[in-house]
């Protein structure tokens, strides 16, 4: 079997004295869609942010596509990576945020072409052509010149997905992508994510959408209080949860 896309080993994370992650170990295979579920405060968003080093972990290791995240190992010593090297690692990892975080002073198109031009060194006209393709793909081909404030939440999130895809990532992280949306706008974002999964993108999705997790997820991981309580394919976790905490959680959300 080939190298997993994401490999986490005994990941611990503290904020001050508050230990948020208490030893997370898991693997995501290339092309897999993994959904992280759990009550708020269980550490699932924090873990996701550790994968692209937005949060520094206190112990353990995370590898993305075989590369250690945030550090380099020379001999038996771990060296902190320079800012620019961390940035280089992040280019390969797309991230979609709960609150979209589109650049407010730029149009949808400018949002999408910014990183390809500035970071990846793509030519402007090439980046623009790719932006058009991406916007068509998320169903917003006619809104290239719209500013974020002129778009609905669902549209903003779709632009945010297009922006992340513009860097041609090998892994996409979704941090509760539909939690800030009106119920009637959730569907359009999930549709885009569903299509992305069908195209074979490796995805780690923190979500409360159990329906999506069941339908699209290859693996479902249930986290609580900083640990992985239960994981497996959606059918077994949803229909036949083994652990009490999983049962309690699912009985509330299903």
């Amino acid at each position: 079997m080939s190298e997993p896309m994401v490999k986490a080993e005994a990941v611990h994370k503290r904020f001050g004295r508050n230990e948020v992650l208490k030893g997370i170990t898991l693997e995501v295979a290339a092309g897999e869609v993994m959904c992280l579920l759990g009550p708020s405060g269980s550490g699932k968003s924090t873990f996701l942010r550790c994968i692209n080093h937005l949060e520094k972990i206190n112990s353990g290791r995370i590898w993305v596509d075989g590369d250690l995240v945030g550090y380099s190992q020379r001999g038996d010593k771990l060296h902190e990576m320079r800012e620019s090297d961390v940035a280089g690692e992040r280019e390969q990892i797309g991230m979609v945020f709960q609150r979209f975080n589109l650049f407010g002073h730029m149009t949808a198109e400018q949002n999408i072409i910014e990183a390809p031009i500035r970071v990846a060194g793509t030519k402007r006209d090439v980046a623009k052509a790719e932006a058009k393709v991406l916007m068509d793909r998320v169903g917003l081909g006619d809104r290239l010149d719209a500013y974020p404030a002129q778009l609905s939440g669902g549209q903003q999130q779709r632009v945010a997905i297009a922006r992340a895809l513009a860097m041609k990532p090998k892994l996409m992280l979704f941090d509760e992508p539909t939690s800030a949306l009106d119920p009637e706008l959730v569907g359009e974002v999930l549709d885009v994510m569903r299509a992305l999964a069908a195209d074979g993108m490796t995805m780690v999705v923190v979500t409360h959408e159990t329906g999506f997790a069941k339908e699209v997820g290859d693996t479902v991981v249930f986290m609580d209080d900083g640990v992985v309580v239960e994981s497996g394919d959606p059918a077994s976790v949803f229909d036949n949860p083994q652990h009490k905490r999983t049962q309690a959680f699912l009985s509330k959300v299903l």
Partner: peptide
């Protein structure tokens, strides 16, 4: 400027000075 702006820029692989000049300062 909302912290999310800096995070989004970081997640895209933008460097610190780029983020400051292109994303934070204009806003």
């Amino acid at each position: 400027v909302d912290e999310g702006q800096e995070e989004a820029a970081k997640a895209l692989g933008m460097r610190r000075m780029q983020t400051m000049r292109r994303i934070i300062l204009p806003q």
